[in-house]
Design a protein around this nucleic acid. Structure first.
Lengths: 338, 338
DNA sequence: TCAAAAAGTGTAAGCGCTTACATTTTAAAA
DNA sequence: TTTTAAAATGTAAGCGCTTACACTTTTTGA
């Protein structure tokens, strides 16, 4: 026994009357040891309640069966869902997920990357593709397998699993336009350090441009992804001299806020103003009326990401990116303009 | 350089022209080394981009600066908030939070506990106080510092940081009763393996009993904490021969579902039926009308938990529990019955 | 100025595990 | 049987770090 009085490989070996190497092999290469010995060792392990010491293992084998993920924030249902799946999926392969948050700050992200690498993660999952060149440099220098999620872009040379934010937003805008809307406003997310938010705005803007419409202030607002900021932004939009007939929101949370603003202004949705969201989180269905929004298959994204990062970590080789399709889910917050 | 070509303490020492011990001291006991040496070492660290190897550190010092938390699920805004704070708070002390999920299954929780201990966590954070005796036995045998969150009970001999679910629910029920309601129904969470859900139901039940009312089927329903189950349950309640005038929900998510059901049934809230929630998550403010609910100071809970678990891990000694007060926040989903 | 105390460094022995290589045991072939 | 190949096990050298202890340098006080 050692200082922390947890049993060690050595204790097991002694009790089973074999060498430490044999015990180690029982654990890692079980079919290299005779059945009878294995039984004896297993009994010893059970009797002592032995668990391998993580540090020793990491030190000797130089891998940790750990994958790190750095997300902007946990206080966001969007990431929570994908992450939950990712975690479940990884744990099926005996891999632990380490989660850190960057609060949308590239510098904090870089710091967290170092922290996670310091913990010996075998792979890294990051959100979006926009970050300082040095960060990518650092990652490639270090030869860390990493994967970008929530984004799908051909601009980036790095492996990613996600959807095309631009395309999805473009589709949604086209959808709104085809329903007859011409006065279209957008409440987008803060674009600083957030490529997803920027692409969603660009997608809407491009769709409008193609239809001879222009997305510009005061019809274009950037706010944080919170209910209250969404509400405040919508309040201003609805108080304009010519208010929009439709508001496209950067995500469902903002859309919920916009809905609230409409209610408070005594307006009916969708009769007086249409509001659409993005992400299709639970909230989208909870509010009244239900939000027409872009459905993102978070579970599938999590599952694929788990599969790929494991593959990358194992083979130390790049893998092909995966694009996940989104679709518009119709509820009742959008109506036709005649 | 070693196999993984990451710089080691040794590389730093060589470059700075000092011994590994000195480098180590620069990192851990900085005021035991001379200023000029420190500068040299720091330069070497920067030049190499050195990060301590976690395994080596864990092995040599027998601590990991890691705290593990096992929550039922990440897909729940309630835990996400507290966890986010916990994580931020811990990272201020250089501690990493490892999150695992149990999906409300005690066996899975036990498994996760072992997994986290295997990773050498210095402390453990668990949700609620109800779990098999063996689990507690295991934890105490192993002398792992651990902390229960989201609960505050004198029944449990273990350190906890949270609020009194029974009392909070009792207060809410009293509040509803004082507003004149007598036909009160409750949509509670699934009680299996969930002491918080059970206490909330008991709290409501007790308050009613004290006022000569009885909480029983069909006015008492247990469902999962999801919007849809909340909606379905409320739908049945509202279709009863004598529907309740008020529905107390086990959490805001269920309440949002109930709200939805009322809308669908063409009923106005709170005019035709009052609905109250629990937890005060963002959702409570997002829905229309805003939910009258029990406000739980999640941030404060996270902060206190971080403080305590650090203290426990450091001193290897129990600390006093902390009870956090809740309060009712009035929005507009509850009205007086004349 | 010099001895004694204090401060700063270096040396080297582990921490618990894996794994290349050496050795012993068992099975197969002759 | 004996010989030889194959399988099972043991030996021991690290992996990167901390830290007790020994040693050297600097500071302090007379």
């Amino acid at each position: 026994m050692n200082t922390s009085n947890l049993p060690t490989l050595d204790d097991v070996a002694r009790l089973a009357g074999v060498s430490t190497a044999t015990v180690s092999r029982c654990l890692n290469l079980p079919d290299q040891v005779r059945h009878t010995t294995k039984t004896r060792v297993e009994a010893a392990i059970a009797e002592l309640g032995y668990t391998p010491h993580f540090g020793g293992l990491a030190l000797a084998s130089n891998r940790t069966n750990t994958v790190g993920a750095i997300i902007p924030t946990m206080e966001n249902a969007i990431f929570a869902r994908g992450l939950q799946v990712l975690q479940e999926e990884l744990s099926l392969s005996g891999i632990t997920l380490l989660v850190a948050t960057s609060l949308y700050d590239p510098e904090k992200e870089a710091k967290q990357i170092r922290a996670l690498l310091g913990r010996g993660v075998d792979g890294l999952i990051l959100i979006g593709h926009e970050r300082p060149q040095e960060t990518y440099q650092f990652l490639t220098d270090r030869r860390v397998p990493f994967l970008l999620m929530w984004t799908s872009t051909t601009d980036s040379p790095y492996c990613n699993v996600g959807f095309d934010n631009h395309q999805a937003a473009y589709d949604m805008a086209m959808h709104v336009i085809l329903r007859g809307h011409r006065q279209i406003a957008m409440i987008g997310g803060t674009t600083k350090g957030n490529d997803r938010a920027r692409e969603r705005i660009k997608g809407v803007s491009n769709a409008m441009k193609q239809n001879g419409l222009k997305l510009q202030a005061p019809y274009l607002v950037e706010t944080e992804y919170t209910i209250d900021e969404g509400r405040a932004a919508a309040q201003k939009l609805l108080a304009l001299h010519t208010p929009p007939t439709a508001i496209i929101c950067g995500n469902d949370v903002q859309a919920a806020g916009a809905l609230k603003a409409a209610h408070q202004a005594g307006l009916k949705v969708p009769d007086d103003v249409s509001i659409v969201g993005f992400d299709d989180i639970d909230l989208a269905e909870a509010v009244e009326p239900g939000l027409t929004t872009v459905h993102v298959p978070h579970r599938r994204m999590g599952r694929e990401a788990a599969r790929l990062i494991i593959q990358m970590a194992r083979n130390r080789a790049p893998v092909e990116s995966i694009r996940i399709d989104t679709n518009i889910v119709e509820r009742s917050s959008l109506r036709d303009i005649s």
